[in-house]
Nucleic acid binder design. Structure first.
Lengths: 132, 132
DNA sequence: GCTTGACTTCGAGTGCACTCGAAGGGGGAG
DNA sequence: CTCCCCCTTCGAGTGCACTCGAAGTCAAGC
């Protein structure tokens, strides 16, 4: 490896951010990532900043942001500081969605835990019966 | 409506549980729901118990349980009390998944909130500049 | 000089969970 | 009698986010 300090290769970046090489190229193609810097041979070299961006994208994805919104966000970021307000609103809306989602999961979890309790009781009775 | 007390029609059930009529039939066809009781004309009549079951299914779905696991669960339920242990395990595993999912959302939410803070600060500076 | 890993474009395939529409028929309420 | 809601089977379509494979090229490292 003679690229020490020159940034990560695609496969290294893939390993670091938890996306496949295919997906990294696809993200770039879809405009979620600015065209990545290249080495003399034309191969992608991901800088720390680009890796951070990718990590942020994975967090947005994992919290359920659709790819089209991520694309929108990437476009805004590309346009510079003038779009900070829009990016803020985009993130605030997303936060609300995530909070609602968490609340929904917690609500529905209660039904699951209630069932676990019931089944636990039923199981105990069975055990008690079967073991005497 | 002369079916007072005779159970809900498909469309009523759909409205109550938040699934489409198409999806209700599809759930039945996929074995997520036992064949629903019928009236003299062969039309589905959902009892309160059947509605409760559907509501439970929607909670499982909304917490991310795949349809194949829901089918497995429905099969176990159909087999009676002897499968309570398996159902308990199924729910316990699902609970763990949901808890992990909530934890993941909360973790990733932090990054989003951090960004909101940053953008908030940037926006304030801009406002301060533009308003004076 | 050969292997390895990277590059390109392209389109097709995958998995999931619906979602819809067509075609043709039946029964009950107003 | 006539709507309207329901029934059936069937297969195809949708949306999302990948995911894969093919085909051909290129350059660096051993």
């Amino acid at each position: 490896m003679s690229h020490i300090g020159a940034g990560a290769t695609v496969s290294e970046a893939a390993a670091k951010v938890g996306l496949s090489v295919h997906t990294l190229r696809w993200y770039e193609q879809e405009g979620l990532v600015e065209p990545v810097g290249r080495d003399t041979a034309g191969r992608r070299r991901y800088s720390d900043g680009e890796l951070d961006w990718l990590v942020l994208l994975t967090k947005l994805r994992s919290t359920g942001m659709p790819v089209r919104d991520m694309r929108r966000y990437a476009e805004l970021a590309r346009l510079g500081d003038g779009t900070v307000g829009q990016r803020l609103r985009l993130f605030q809306e997303h936060r609300e969605r995530v909070l609602r989602r968490i609340a929904e999961l917690q609500r529905d979890l209660e039904a699951i835990e209630y069932k676990i309790e019931i089944y636990g009781q039923m199981g105990c009775e069975y055990e008690a019966t079967s073991t005497g």
